[in-house]
């Protein structure tokens, strides 16, 4: 049996005075595509940030069996680049910044990823000037540049119109499968997400326990 990439074992996570996750046990296995749903404030983002290593559990164990740095790629809810003058090419290069490779190989890799995601013509554009849908495709290229074992996405299409959402998710699944990456998608809005190709989970709180249940 394949070992999980990430295992939560009876994990407690506190944010300020509030115990957000209690006794949570949950696995993410290689290559699987998970959607984690749940009500607002239930702890989805806390779970995700704990998986990413940004928040340390108060109790319990979090086991990560990953190749090394850069094995987890993160696509946040909104791009926080603000008015940073950064080109599309430089954004994708962030995914390669911890990998050792020559300039020619790097340029080819960036071009190939942008082309695969239909963004090759945007390479020299300023990231700040892109539309929401273009930004998310470029951010996906950045994540894939890391050759990750697990792609973690936090409400990646929040605020985007339905047409862009309907195009983004099939592309995400195709690209993740092509790169052999598992996907953990956290969202409360399932509009535009294809029915097939996902294992659907729901985060719930029950008395003194946080549970991840399979749905549908």
């Amino acid at each position: 049996m394949t070992e999980p990439l990430i295992s939560f074992r009876r994990v407690h996570v506190r944010r300020g005075n509030r115990l957000v996750l209690r006794n949570l046990s949950f696995d993410v296995s290689p290559g699987e595509h998970l959607i984690l749903q749940g009500e607002n404030g239930i702890g989805k983002t806390t779970l995700l940030k704990t998986a990413l290593g940004f928040i340390l559990p108060e109790k319990g164990s979090l086991i990560r069996k990953l190749r090394g740095p850069g094995s987890l790629a993160y696509l946040p809810q909104e791009s926080l680049s603000g008015d940073l003058p950064i080109s599309v090419r430089e954004v994708v290069d962030i995914g390669l910044s911890a990998r050792r490779m020559g300039r020619a190989e790097r340029n080819r890799k960036i071009h190939d990823l942008l082309e695969a995601l239909g963004c090759a013509s945007l390479a020299r554009r300023s990231f700040a000037t892109l539309s929401g849908g273009e930004k998310q495709r470029v951010s996906l290229a950045r994540c894939l540049a890391q050759a990750p074992e697990l792609l973690v996405l936090d409400e990646p299409t929040a605020g985007l119109d339905p047409e862009i959402r309907a195009r983004f998710y099939p592309l995400l699944l195709e690209m993740a499968a092509g790169h052999g990456a598992a996907v953990l998608l956290v969202t409360h809005d399932l509009k535009g997400i294809p029915q097939t190709g996902w294992r659907r989970l729901r985060l719930e709180q029950e008395l003194d326990e946080s549970l991840v249940r399979e749905v549908g």
């Binding site: 954004v91 995914g95 890391q146």
Partner: peptide, 14 residues
Amino acid sequence: TAVLFNYEVAATSG
């Protein structure tokens, strides 16, 4: 550049 772009993204990029 990665750190200036987004601190958490930089951290997960290794």
